[in-house]
C-alpha cells in the first residue's frame, strides 16, 4: 500500500506518494505549490530552464485524481508561479489538462497567486479566497500558528524530511502532521522547488515520500 493513512480527529485522510492528500469522506484531492510556469518565468528573465516540468506536474496531478477517484481538487495556494511565467505554451498545456480532468478545482489564494490576477477562463479555476473550508477541514496557504478547533491543511513551506546518522543521510519531500497545532503541511507538488528542512521531532509526525511510497509517521508524540 503506497499511501499512508492518518486520522485528523476522526476525519480520515490518505497521504499519497504523488504528493497529494486525499480526504476520503469528501473525495477531495488536496495539493499545494504547483508553481506552474516557474520554468517560463526563469526564461523570461533570460535564464534557460528545463523543459517538461509542468508537463510532469500536471500528468501526476491527473494520475493522483484518477487513482483516488476524486470528486474535487483543492489547491492550497501557489497554483502558478508568476504572471510572466504563463505563456502560450503554459495556457495550452493546462487547457488540454482540463479537457482530460474536468473536476472542479478550488484555488485557495497563495502568495504567488496574487501575481496572476486573472487566470484563463479555459482553466476553469474557482478562486475561493484566502481561507476555505470543506468537510470540517480548513485550508489556508500559510500554516497558522494554531488551528483552534478542527484541522487546517496548508502549503507554502515545501517541507523536506532531513535525517542523518553515521554514514547515511536522507532528504525527501514530506507531509508534516502537527498534532499539537492541528495543522498539516503538504509537500510542494512541484518538483522544481527547494524547501524547509524538518528533522524528526516530538509533537510533529513526518511522512516522507521515497521510492513511490509514503513512510511514516517519523517522530511524533512524546
Amino acid at each position: 500500500m503506497p499511501s499512508a493513512t492518518v486520522s485528523l480527529d476522526g476525519i480520515d485522510a490518505e497521504l499519497m506518494p504523488e504528493r497529494a492528500l486525499f480526504l476520503c469522506a469528501d473525495r477531495a484531492l488536496v495539493v499545494a505549490d504547483l508553481h506552474i510556469g516557474k520554468s517560463e518565468s526563469y526564461r523570461r528573465f533570460g535564464v534557460p530552464s528545463a523543459d517538461g516540468i509542468d508537463e510532469e506536474t500536471l500528468e501526476r496531478l491527473g494520475r493522483a485524481a484518477m487513482r483516488a477517484g476524486a470528486k474535487v481538487i483543492v489547491v492550497v495556494g501557489d497554483l502558478t508561479h508568476h504572471a510572466d511565467g504563463i505563456g502560450e505554451a503554459e495556457m495550452e498545456r493546462f487547457a488540454r489538462f482540463r479537457e482530460r480532468i474536468m473536476l472542479p478545482i478550488r484555488l485557495v489564494e497563495g502568495n504567488h497567486d496574487r501575481g496572476a490576477r486573472t487566470l484563463p477562463a479555459e482553466w476553469m479555476i474557482d478562486r475561493v479566497g484566502a481561507r476555505f473550508a470543506l468537510g470540517g477541514v480548513r485550508f489556508e496557504h500559510e500554516p497558522p500558528e494554531s488551528s483552534g478547533v478542527g484541522w487546517t491543511v496548508s502549503g507554502h513551506l515545501h517541507p523536506m524530511l532531513s535525517v542523518a546518522r553515521g554514514v547515511r543521510s536522507v532528504e525527501a519531500p514530506a507531509f508534516v502532521v502537527d498534532r499539537a497545532r492541528r495543522t498539516v503541511v503538504l509537500p510542494a507538488f512541484s518538483k522544481f522547488t527547494r524547501g524547509v528542512r524538518f528533522a524528526p521531532q516530538t509533537g510533529c509526525e513526518l511522512f516522507a515520500i521515497a521510492e513511490g511510497a509514503v513512510l511514516g509517521p517519523i517522530g511524533g508524540a512524546a
Binding site: V163, A164, R165, V167, R168, S169, V170, G219
Partner: peptide, 21 residues
C-alpha cells in the same frame, strides 16, 4: 562525502532503526 547504493527507503529505515524514538 558519502556514497550510497542503498535505496532511499533502506537508508531511511536504517537511520530510524538506530535512533531513539
Amino acid at each position: 562525502t558519502t556514497l550510497s547504493t542503498e535505496g532511499v527507503l533502506a537508508r531511511l529505515e536504517a537511520i530510524l532503526a538506530g535512533s531513539v524514538r
